[in-house]
Design a protein around this nucleic acid. Structure first.
Lengths: 243, 243
DNA sequence: CTTAACAGGTCAACGGTGTTGTCGTAAGGT
DNA sequence: ACCTTACGACAACACCGTTGACCTGTTAAG
């Protein structure tokens, strides 16, 4: 294949599509996100995206090497939107809780994109910004470098992982989701205490608890543990001047 | 379409394939798992599975309604295998850590199945068994009902979510995974301290830490927090006789 | 032992997917 | 006004899941 993708810097000759649209990487990414939002998960394909843009599918390959490249761009845009309005206050626990909930909510708002992009490292602008911010919060809190990185990694992955998990749930067809609730109510709610004593003893709580996301609870546990770890740090192990 | 799938009960007339194989639901599921293991996640397609079995792809539709149906069967088999050799010892922290790591490893071994089945509730035998076991571990440890359920939910979801997240990573083509490592090494490893002080200060740790899964760290944080919570419980709040 | 029913394997086709080689054309720099 | 070339369009390829129609061997009934 020839060198098809033109780096954004050298891009200049704007030529409208047959249907009159002037393409750009941003327009493509935005349209992709809109497509996902409006028509659900599997509405995103190169051909559909081309149609939605009013362009030949193959035109997109002038902007992105392949669909994976496009997904990374979408993921980075999502990160950017999530971070845009987040302002750390100085209370690191509150800041991380807020950020975690935002990431989770962002994933739920774009189920398909979340599932497809959660495990990718984009190395792009917004992601770098996010890494820098979160590391800053942790180091300013007093975590020494290696521990800060470990906590950062676990924090981000947890938010992304739960986001992907929970949004995969919302992407299910309506009937399937109702069927799952039914399973908890009937199958688990009616197991006899003789054979399944622990389920029977907690059935009431199971039915109510399992329908909501466990991310808030998991996040609080995570932050509790992190704070405990910070408190137990030998004095003076934080990096000097991490501001 | 006609009623294509025959319920396993009524299944009887075994007729060998053109290539001499006698199909069965079990054989299909086992072959699918083997395919995933040997040739990666995207090696699983109806057509490839048919070829691997020595049967026409459309034959599989005599055993499963569609690929989703097949995936659920695979997931069920996976749960069974994960739990089969797990024996709680009485040390609840160690038991949960062991189980969490097993679930995670099981997911990694079958990426595609893990991703597709992590958010499903099957309500079938193995799943019920798992719920009962884990709840038992927690209640015997001393957690009162509602708290046991909350911890259970977060624990399972965390294991499944990280399993899906990490296995999505391994499902990537080799080149993409190398590209990610490269991103950490170069993009993040070379950011100037002036613009990105926190990344620059921890670059060394970032490069090494980010290549591995953060699940073990997240799991330990989780168990730490749970233990702290148990220790801070008012005395005598555990359910009486939870054995 | 014969026979009729039908489970279940096979075939061909449909409409979808990502991706690429090729070509024409119009935009931009000179 | 000319050249270069960016970039949109087209056609084709190989794959995908799924289905309706067909055919054949097994099996149970008579």
């Amino acid at each position: 294949m020839t060198d098809r993708v033109v780096p954004p810097a050298a891009r200049q000759r704007k030529r409208p599509t047959k249907q009159g649209v002037v393409l750009s990487a941003e327009l493509i990414v935005d349209t992709a996100l809109r497509l996902i939002e409006e028509h659900g998960a599997d509405a995103l394909s190169v051909r559909r995206l081309g149609r939605a843009l009013g362009a030949d599918p193959s035109s997109l390959y002038r902007y992105f090497r392949d669909t994976d490249d496009l997904m990374l761009a979408i993921a980075d845009e999502l990160i950017g939107r999530t971070l845009r309005s987040w302002r750390p206050t100085g209370d690191w626990v509150a800041d991380l809780r807020e950020l975690g909930l935002r990431m989770h909510a962002g994933a739920l708002a774009h189920p398909r994109a979340a599932v497809l992009s959660a495990h990718r490292v984009t190395g792009r602008r917004h992601e770098i910004q996010a890494v820098e911010s979160i590391l800053g919060v942790l180091r300013r809190a007093g975590f020494p470098g290696p521990e800060a990185v470990r906590i950062y990694h676990a924090f981000v992955d947890q938010a992304l992982a739960f986001g992907a998990l929970d949004s995969a749930g919302t992407a299910l067809p309506r009937s399937a989701r109702e069927a799952e609730a039914q399973v908890w109510r009937t199958t688990y709610g009616r197991l006899p205490a003789e054979s399944h004593p622990h389920i029977a003893a907690t059935a009431r709580h199971l039915v109510t608890t399992m329908r909501a996301s466990s991310y808030p609870a998991a996040l609080d546990l995570f932050l509790d543990a992190a704070r405990t770890r910070l408190d137990n740090l030998p004095a003076g192990t934080g990096d000097p001047r991490p501001h």
